[in-house]
Simulated assay, not measured.
Amino acid sequence: MRVAAIDCGTNSVRLLIADIDGDVLRDVERRMEIVRLGQGVDRTGRLAPEALERTFTAMRGYAELIAKHGATAVRVVATSATRDAENRQEFVDGVRGIFGVEPEVVTGAEEAALSFTGATKGLALTTPYLVVDIGGGSTEFVVGSDRVESALSVDIGCVRLTERHLKDAGDPPSVAALEAVVADIERALDRVTDEVPVERAHTLVGLAGTVTTVAGIALGLETYDPERIHHAIVSAEKVHEVTRRLVSMTHGERSEIPVMHPGRVDVIGAGGLILDRIVRRFAFPQVVVSEHDILDGIAWSVH
């Protein structure tokens, strides 16, 4: 069966066209565009017209690919930025017009479950897992073995924290601004500690662009290589080292990092701090990096 999955997050919109046969998922096409749909949502509570147009432009290209490859089932999932927006109906109407299906603005719990499925299907490490999906507007924490046992979505993400604290904080950002980011992260992790049994987890699995970018830097890659990054193991010390480098660099210096996508240059510092504080707070010795995430979970869900 050939399926198409679209994940519309706060920072990026992604497409996976895949063939699913039993327990095997084979990529036909995997695409990602940085559209910054969540631009200003934390401040205004609304999706900006220019952000919507960037997103719809990327989606029109995806619709052409879906038609070209003949996918028979399509599911569009939208997450944090769209959940938070007063004018999300504009987004819903635009997506329906492009793909002919209703986009699903999923809850944090649904997002967590899809991420868990995508990340852990076929993973054979010591369970339970703590799956952490660091997005643009939110971060999901999921504990489970072969299914979700506990999950929580908290409103810390690389775009949200950058807009809140780092946008006008200097280049590189001031110590005070970085401390404000960390304070927000720690408050969110207090909730995680109270509501999710993280202490049960044996293996930390990290997902999404922040984690894969930090892994690419830690591995010293000269080009972004998903095959090298997928299931790479990055030590806690390396996470701390890379994060320290990122928050002390200028925008120009970060843009020259070989594995850095241009759309992540301004938000990677906040994203790195989220990963760094998770590793510190919960004392994991390492993070297992997954290139498979909510997008794969969406694909499995329409099978």
Rank of each mutant, 00 (worst) to 15 (best):
I66K: 11
V13D: 05
I17Y: 02
D19Y: 00
T10C: 02
E64S: 14
E50I: 02
L37R: 07
D23G: 09
E53A: 13
E50Y: 14
E50G: 09
I20V: 11
D42M: 01
F56K: 13
M32L: 15
A5D: 04
D23Y: 01
V24A: 05
I34V: 14
T57Y: 07
D27H: 09
V28G: 01
R36L: 03
T10E: 06
V41P: 02
D7P: 08
E64L: 15
I6P: 02
F56T: 14
I34G: 01
A58Q: 05
L16S: 08
P49D: 13
A63F: 08
G9P: 07
D19L: 04
L52R: 08
A48C: 05
L52F: 06
G9D: 02
F56P: 13
R2C: 02
R43K: 14
D23F: 01
V28I: 13
G45A: 06
R14D: 04
P49T: 12
R36W: 01
I66P: 09
A18Q: 04
A5S: 11
A48M: 11
G9N: 08
E64H: 14
I17R: 05
L47D: 12
T55A: 06
P49H: 10
M59D: 14
V35N: 00
R31T: 08
I34M: 02
D7C: 06
T57K: 12
I6D: 07
Q39K: 01
E50W: 03
G45N: 11
D42L: 10
R36Q: 05
A4G: 07
M32D: 03
R46M: 06
R43Y: 08
V3M: 02
M59V: 14
L15M: 11
D21N: 07
V3Q: 05
R26I: 00
C8G: 13
V28E: 09
R2V: 06
R60P: 14
E53G: 09
Y62V: 15
A67P: 10
R14F: 03
V3I: 09
C8N: 10
A67H: 14
D7L: 02
G9C: 06
S12C: 11
L15S: 07
R26C: 03
T57D: 13
L65N: 10
M32G: 04
G9T: 04
G22N: 09
V24I: 08
G40W: 02
E33Y: 06
I66V: 15
G61D: 14
T44K: 09
M59T: 12
V24L: 02
G45W: 07
R43S: 12
G38N: 01
R14H: 10
Q39M: 02
E29R: 15
I66F: 10
A63C: 12
V41H: 01
E33M: 08
D27I: 10
N11Y: 09
